[in-house]
């Protein structure tokens, strides 16, 4: 009696296990399916694909804030992982209208969209900026970005692009932008795992040093430990500086932060390209 009742139980367990496994595989797909309406603007830069370094994001945000203060024009930068087979033009227009880039009624806004896996780019131009950023100009700018995009240097591509259209807008409005243009940020020299490894090393060295110190009752051993600890800590602090410092241009008026987009509209101006 027992084996026959155990078998269905085993079968049931197997089925549950199978379901769980299937769920594990399905869940990421379900999450990554196109739900553009769920994307909310968090700033000028919306790096949904996670391909921009913190330094680049800060520089771009700073520059866009200053541009808005000086000219009233708003720029959005959006990176996404994939378009899920939808045309880049439609996704860019949908995101533009959803975010509402540019002030309502004036519609002076532009939105850069990079879809990383599809290698598609688009500059969507709001009604108000159409005379300043004609489609031919937008297309030629996107073609100029191809080499940087092919190198997966998305931060450099976006800083160049934003500076180019920023200058063009400022010139058309007869104003000058204060502060530096966003500068090319070096690719992150210290990815997260290096910092993690350094923390582990630091802990090990500290433990090792402490253990040796206890065994010998101080003296030379703990001295070596201290030196190693110091070196590891120095490296850590350096890496921290590298990450933050790459965007470090203190001292100028950054023009305040992101105050939200203004409800602008776009009629599909701009251009698309691929890389």
């Amino acid at each position: 009696m027992k084996p026959s009742s155990a078998r269905p139980l085993a079968a049931l367990l197997l089925r549950v296990w199978g379901l769980l496994l299937a769920l594990c595989f399905l869940l990421p797909c379900a999450l990554s399916a196109a739900d553009w309406k769920a994307l909310k603007a968090t700033g000028y830069v919306n790096d949904f694909a996670g391909v921009l370094s913190p330094g680049s994001v800060r520089q771009l945000n700073d520059y866009c804030a200053r541009l808005e203060k000086a000219t009233g024009a708003q720029i959005a930068i959006v990176t996404i992982e994939t378009l899920d087979g939808e045309p880049v033009d439609e996704v860019a227009n949908l995101l533009y209208r959803q975010f509402g880039v540019g002030q309502k009624g004036k519609n002076e806004g532009a939105l850069f969209l990079l879809s990383i896996r599809d290698r598609r780019s688009r500059l969507e131009v709001g009604y108000g900026l159409e005379p300043i950023l004609p489609d031919g100009f937008a297309g030629s700018l996107l073609r100029d970005l191809r080499p940087a995009l092919r190198d997966a240097d998305y931060g450099a591509a976006m800083t160049t692009a934003v500076a180019t259209i920023g200058e063009r807008i400022a010139q058309a409005k007869g104003v000058t932008l204060t502060g530096p243009a966003p500068k090319r940020v070096e690719k992150e020299t210290h990815p997260g795992w290096v910092i993690g490894a350094l923390v582990v090393l630091l802990l090990l060295v500290a433990l090792f040093g402490a253990a040796r110190g206890n065994m010998r009752g101080g003296g030379r051993g703990s001295g070596v430990g201290d030196v190693l600890t110091g070196m590891a800590m120095g490296a850590l602090m350096n890496s921290g500086r590298g990450g933050r410092g790459s965007g470090g241009f203190g001292g100028y008026d950054s023009g305040g932060g992101f105050g939200g987009f203004g409800g602008g509209d776009s009629g599909g101006g701009g251009a698309s390209s691929s890389w």
């Binding site: 439609e90 489609d135 297309g139 701009g270 251009a271």
Partner: peptide, 15 residues
Amino acid sequence: LRLHDEIAGAENRIA
């Protein structure tokens, strides 16, 4: 290429 961008832009505006 620029003319093509303009045409493509016009088509997208139509859409």
